[in-house]
């Protein structure tokens, strides 16, 4: 049981980090970013390149992932999502654009980084073993701690910085924020870049544990959407709660249901459908949006 809880916390911290960027972009721009998983993959490959290939310090490689995705996110918002949102009132326009960007990024990843699974040396050796009740490699513990630290830093930034307050105002009411002097275009770009940076950060962190390959983008996006649906779309705290709930459900399901085959996600999907029928706005979302 202890192992299951430990696995759940570890998975939850990963998932919460993945969902944060997605829900931030949704909150700010009402955009379902289907390319979020691909951004995560690019973050992993950038860290792989700098840490695994060029043998630079891990933290520097992680910084490079964040920077790359920040720039990529800003460019995507400025030249793709921004103009489309201004020109089209139809929500499906941005959804189709996001899907197109996901395909494009997949193709670019294949061209630049190749088809193979990539991995990097462990950042910490050794395994924590508490009498075979909890077994957890130290690198997972470290990544879990870093993920939780990053979440706390992100919340602090959103809560107390001028930019964070502007972004929250934008998320709450775009028109009111504009009337209060918030430069909507500028902060939309900053928000999208921040969301992309979070994807890059978690990709860079997790490449040390899971490695990275070009096929990881789509499934990562799907899991991120699951978490956002559980927690409530566009709610930061909802994404965190959704991430931890999904991580715990997955850990418990894999432990309890393993003898019946791979039905964990089947059960999760059924439970989610029932849950959304009762509470379509998710745990922390508001019914009115």
């Amino acid at each position: 049981m202890e192992q299951v809880v430990a696995n759940g916390i570890y998975l939850g911290s990963q998932y919460a980090m993945i969902a944060l960027g997605l829900t931030l972009i949704f909150a700010l721009m009402n955009v379902l970013n289907f390319a979020h998983g691909q951004m995560y993959v690019i973050g992993g490959f950038v860290t792989y390149t700098f840490y695994g290939q060029f043998q630079m310090p891990f933290l520097l490689a992680l910084l490079m992932s964040c920077l790359t995705l920040t720039v990529l996110g800003a460019l995507i918002e400025k030249f793709l999502f921004g103009p489309v949102i201004r020109r089209s009132a139809r929500e499906e326009s941005t959804m189709l654009l996001a899907a197109g960007i996901a395909f494009l990024l997949d193709a670019i990843i294949l061209l630049v980084f190749g088809e193979k699974q990539r991995g990097v040396p462990k950042i910490v050796d050794g395994v924590f073993n508490w009498d075979f009740r909890i077994i957890m490699p130290y690198d997972r513990i470290l990544i879990c701690a870093l993920a939780i630290l990053s979440i706390v830093a992100f919340i602090t930034f959103m809560q107390f910085s001028r930019t964070g307050r502007a972004l929250r105002a934008l998320a709450q009411d775009r028109d009111a924020a504009q009337l209060m002097g918030v430069n909507v275009n500028r902060y939309s770009m900053i928000g999208f870049a921040l969301g992309a940076m979070l994807a890059g950060l978690v990709g860079g962190l997790l490449v040390t544990i899971t490695g990275v390959n070009l096929g990881m983008g789509g499934p990562t996006s799907i899991k991120a959407f699951l978490m956002v649906m559980i927690g409530g779309a566009g709610v930061i705290s909802g994404a965190i709660v959704g991430g931890f709930i999904l991580g715990m459900l997955e850990a418990v399901g894999l432990a309890v249901l393993s003898q019946y085959g791979d039905i964990t996600y089947l059960v999760i999907f059924v439970a989610l459908m029932i849950f959304l029928t009762i509470r379509p706005q998710g745990l922390m979302g508001k019914p009115w949006g």
Partner: peptide
């Protein structure tokens, strides 16, 4: 022989624990 995993699994520790 019953334990299976989703093809897109990235973290195998929970999957492998019972095995």
């Amino acid at each position: 022989a019953n334990v299976t995993y989703q093809v897109d699994t990235t973290d195998f520790t929970p999957v492998l624990t019972p095995v």
